[in-house]
Amino acid sequence: MLACGVLLVGHAAAQDDALPGSIQAQATVPDIAVLRQLYAGPAATWPRPRLGPGARFTEFAPLPDMPAPGTRAAALAAIGQRLFDDPALSASGQIACASCHNRELGLGDGLRTAFGHDRQRGRRNSLPLYTMAWMRPLFWDGRAVTLEEQALHPMLDPREMASSIPQVEAALHRDAQYREAFAALNGPRPITAADAGAALAAFERTLRPPRSIWTRVMAQGGKGTALLDDAQLRGLHLFRTKAGCAACHNGPLLSDQRFHNLGLTFYGRRLQDTGRYEVTGDPEDVGRFRTPSLLGLPRTAPYSHLGLFRSLANVVAFYNGGGGVERAEPQAGIPVPRKDPLIGKLDLTKAEQADLVAFLETL
C-alpha cells in the first residue's frame, strides 16, 4: 500500500546555543550519574539537541490523543479493515494491502522491497503503518496529502495491485457484504473507489504504534527515564547531542515530516531514485525523501527507502560514516543531487554506536 522504511539522520556540526544554561554539547557522554540527573525531569528540561543548518526541532512528547471515532467513522473503519485484508481489489485477486503490511511484521513485510503484481519488485521499502493517523504528507516522496488519496495509489499502481477504478468498483459491487455495509452508510447509491479509499483511511486512523519502553517514558512526559538502563540512557543522550539524530527525528512522531537527501540517490546508477523531485520537479528535491517516524522501529527492518540496512547497527554505521556519496556529474538531464548539510561524519566510538543502538531498540 505504502512504500516506506526507516532512516535516522545525524549531524556532526555543533550549534553554540544548542543547550540551556551551562550545559553544552560534549564530545564524550557524561558520567551516568550526571546523565540520570540531566534526564530525571520532563523532556522540556532535558539537554537541548545538537542541531544544524535548517533543522526544525520540536521537543519529544507522547503522541497526541485522537478523538474516539463516531458511529459512522467506526462503521467505515470496520469496512476498511476488511478491505485491507481483501485481495479482491487487485487485478490478480491475490494481493491485498496486508500483503505488504503484515501485522506480524511490524505492519511491513520484512523485505528489502515488496513484490507485487506478477511478482514485480517494487522500488521502495514497504512502510510500517503505525503512525498513519498523524503523518503528512504520505509516501516516501510525499505524493499523497490525505489518507483517502493515499489509499488509492497502491490499487492502481501497475507494480502493486495493478487494478483500475472500474475493476475496484466492480469487485465491491460483486460482494453482498460490501453492498450492504456501504448502503447502510451512504444509502442505495453505487459504491465508488473513493468510498473504498475513505474506508481504508478510516481503518488506518485506528492504527497505533506498539507499546514500548519509549512510549512508557513519554507517557510520563519524559520523567520515566528510570525505565532506561545505562546503555539506553547514554544512547538517548547521544541521539540528542553528539549523533545529532534529533535534528530530524523529533517531536511526538520522532519525525520532522520534512524531506532530506542522505546520499542514497544512486544518481546515474541502476538503483537511481530521485525521490521528492519526481513529485515537485524542483532541482532542490533531487534525492530527498521524507523523514519517517521511528516509533515501533525495532519491528520494522530492513531500513532505508531501499531496504538496504538489515539491522540498526548497520544504520548507525552508515550515518557514523557520513551517509552516502552523491555523484557530481550531471546525468540524463536530471539536476545533480545535493546531500543534506545535516549529514556528516559523527566520529562515534564502537561503544557509543552500541549505546545508540540500545536506545533505538527502546522505540
Results as ranks from 00 to 15, higher is better:
I213P: 00
K223R: 15
R276K: 12
T192Y: 02
R159Y: 15
D285F: 04
K223L: 07
C245S: 11
P190C: 07
L200H: 04
P210V: 08
D285I: 10
L253C: 12
A196I: 03
R276F: 07
P166N: 09
Q272D: 10
G244P: 01
T146I: 05
Q220W: 00
L172C: 10
E169F: 04
T241L: 06
M161W: 04
H260Y: 14
Q232T: 06
T192H: 08
I213H: 00
V168Y: 00
T225E: 06
L233V: 05
Q257H: 04
E284Q: 15
L228H: 09
Q220L: 15
E180N: 13
D285K: 05
T265D: 03
E160V: 10
A193C: 13
D230P: 07
P209W: 06
T192N: 01
R269H: 13
E160H: 03
I165R: 15
T280R: 02
R270C: 00
D285T: 03
P166H: 11
P166T: 11
R174P: 00
T265Q: 07
R179V: 15
L147A: 06
I213R: 13
A201S: 11
E204V: 00
F239G: 01
A170F: 11
E149Y: 01
S164D: 12
D273L: 13
E284A: 15
A170D: 14
A162S: 13
L200V: 13
Y277T: 11
A201G: 07
M155K: 01
L147Y: 11
T225K: 08
A183D: 12
E284H: 13
D175S: 13
R216Y: 00
N261L: 13
A199S: 12
Q257V: 03
R208N: 06
G224Q: 10
A196V: 04
R189F: 02
Q150P: 01
F203S: 07
A199C: 09
V279A: 06
G281Y: 02
G187V: 11
A243L: 01
A219Y: 09
G281R: 02
F266R: 10
E278D: 14
L264V: 12
L264P: 02
F203A: 08
A171T: 03
G197P: 08
G268V: 04
A202R: 01
R240H: 07
K242F: 08
A246Y: 04
E160D: 12
E278C: 03
D282E: 09
E169P: 04
P154R: 06
R211G: 07
Y178Q: 05
R205F: 01
K242T: 02
G187E: 10
T265K: 05
V286P: 11
Q257K: 03
L236K: 08
E284Y: 04
M218Q: 11
P188F: 08
T280A: 02
K223A: 15
D229M: 10
A176E: 14
F239K: 01
A199P: 08
N186I: 05
E148V: 06
R269G: 08
Y178S: 03
